[in-house]
Design a protein around this nucleic acid. Sequence first.
DNA 1: TCGCTGACAGATTTCAATATCTGTCAGACA
DNA 2: TGTCTGACAGATATTGAAATCTGTCAGCGA
Lengths: 197, 197
Amino acid sequence: MNEAVVLTPERILEATEDVLRRFGLSKATVVDVARALDVSHGSVYRHFPSKASLRDAVAKRWLDRANEPLCKIAAGSGPAPERLEKWLRTAFSIKQKKVCDDPEMFATYLALAQDAREVVEAYKDKQVDLIAKILSDGVAQGVFEIDNVKATARAVFDATVRYHHPAHAEEWAKPECPSRIDALIALLLRGVRVCKP
Amino acid sequence: MNEAVVLTPERILEATEDVLRRFGLSKATVVDVARALDVSHGSVYRHFPSKASLRDAVAKRWLDRANEPLCKIAAGSGPAPERLEKWLRTAFSIKQKKVCDDPEMFATYLALAQDAREVVEAYKDKQVDLIAKILSDGVAQGVFEIDNVKATARAVFDATVRYHHPAHAEEWAKPECPSRIDALIALLLRGVRVCKP
DNA sequence: TCGCTGACAGATTTCAATATCTGTCAGACA
DNA sequence: TGTCTGACAGATATTGAAATCTGTCAGCGA
């Protein structure tokens, strides 16, 4: 009876996200989250062992959500070069959109990413796997020529940090940014292509 | 007479560097610098209009010093691919050495770089010019094939931020770092090479 | 005259007292 | 029995008063 009032991890995460959006990472407290749910803060600790774990769980939700369109592109079919370019441009614009739309939220995300926490590492690994998927598709299609797909995928990821790592977010709005992205993508695509003169 | 006691910008910079090394950026004050020189702090302001300008001047000295070996490599002769690789590896190891040898000093450098100040921008532009020099040598040698040398040089620089931007310094000590650098350099070299199957 | 000093106003930082928060747990309540 | 509460200890954050710093400038001494 009255299912709606049962305290679930899901409801807590929802409320936490609200509180973070409202107060920002530095001001949001577990007490605030509890207040938003109209329970004592002790109850929150029944579902999450610490504030850090709660924050990580919220981060995981965001990252998974952000990752979804990228998974689709990687899973899709079609010529690998176009797909790789699309994947990279999508990855960049997702981040860019975040920073523009919701700077308060982005500051939170930045704080997370700079902590180099486990959750973020796992997310990065997932991204590299997606790139690797596209690269190996390209090899199968005979358009890419790659010694070590995994290492190259990592290299592509590393080469593009500037446009997906939040530490560089302030550069993303600069007017010369798009053309620099174009040049970078062109260089990387040339780096994996097969050679036919 | 008594030339040794004349207060010159050079002597002030020397003393400032000492003070920074001793106290770190956050603790170093203009009063400290003046005390080290045994003059009043008002005298320092006779030579530098503000603390910021003094700090920038010190930064410029460091950066110019760090840049010197890279200028030599760029100015040298020999096969461009080897030279580019050497240039990149040298750039990385200079930074890496800095962070290991003198972490207090590096924190100062990081604070500077994160401010994205004019001095740092100028330094970056200089770096890109050096890369461009090597790339155009490569084109002349017939080993590189590049549409837009300047843009590609920028792309190479951007692609390697992870290993020269201080925001990523904590990654540099990780054990998987060298192999990731290898993969990245290989990818970039392939991206500029001429195609002969 | 010319470079330097040292006192000053306003901005910034420090520090310690106070308030708030995190995480635990014995017990209430259903 | 199992979920939730609320008081608590220790850790962390806030606050405001006092100390220090930045940048200026009138005047000193060479």
